[in-house]
């Protein structure tokens, strides 16, 4: 489980960074989205991996080992929402840039 998650995060972030360094805006936005996925999984993993465990504590005396850490899950939710919003905003910007410069290069002009 740990290995799969670690490889997953690595693949997401690795391909994301590669795409981020590409010259086309579409590649950049996909790269940013992939990095965001990797980062979200990473936050999630920071609460330690637990399978089939509820995130919320019951009242009374409880054994913390029966539960998964709820805080990273809350953080991930926030991060997903914010990441989604900023990616959407970037998408608009990408289209504006394409419309104004007539090029989808990140510098707004084709390299010679």
């Amino acid at each position: 489980m740990e290995l799969i998650l670690a490889i997953g995060i690595g693949v997401f972030v690795g391909s994301g960074v590669w795409l981020l360094l590409r010259p086309r805006t579409y590649q950049v936005i996909i790269g940013l989205a992939l990095i965001a996925y990797g980062v979200n999984l990473f936050i999630f993993s920071m609460g330690r991996l637990q399978i089939n465990a509820a995130p919320v504590l019951a009242s009374g005396s409880v054994n913390p080992a029966d539960y998964t850490d709820p805080i990273p899950q809350a953080l991930v939710l926030t991060a997903i929402v914010i990441g989604f919003a900023t990616t959407a905003l970037f998408l608009v910007l990408l289209l504006v840039s394409r419309g104004l410069t007539g090029s989808d290069h990140v510098d707004g002009r084709e390299p010679n």
Binding site: L20, T25, V28, L32, I35, A36, V39, N40, F42, I43, S45, M46, G47, I71, P72, L75, A79, I82, G83, T86, T87, L89, F90, L93, L94, V96, S97, L100, T101, V106, D107, G108
Partner: peptide
């Protein structure tokens, strides 16, 4: 402005990812 803004947004979005990684490592 659109050109400069595009770079600004990309850099800050990448920075936000680093921010999250740092925060979650510290939390971990």
């Amino acid at each position: 402005r659109v050109k400069a803004g595009l770079h600004y947004v990309v850099i800050n979005l990448a920075g936000a990812s680093l921010f999250l990684i740092g925060v979650s490592l510290i939390y971990g």
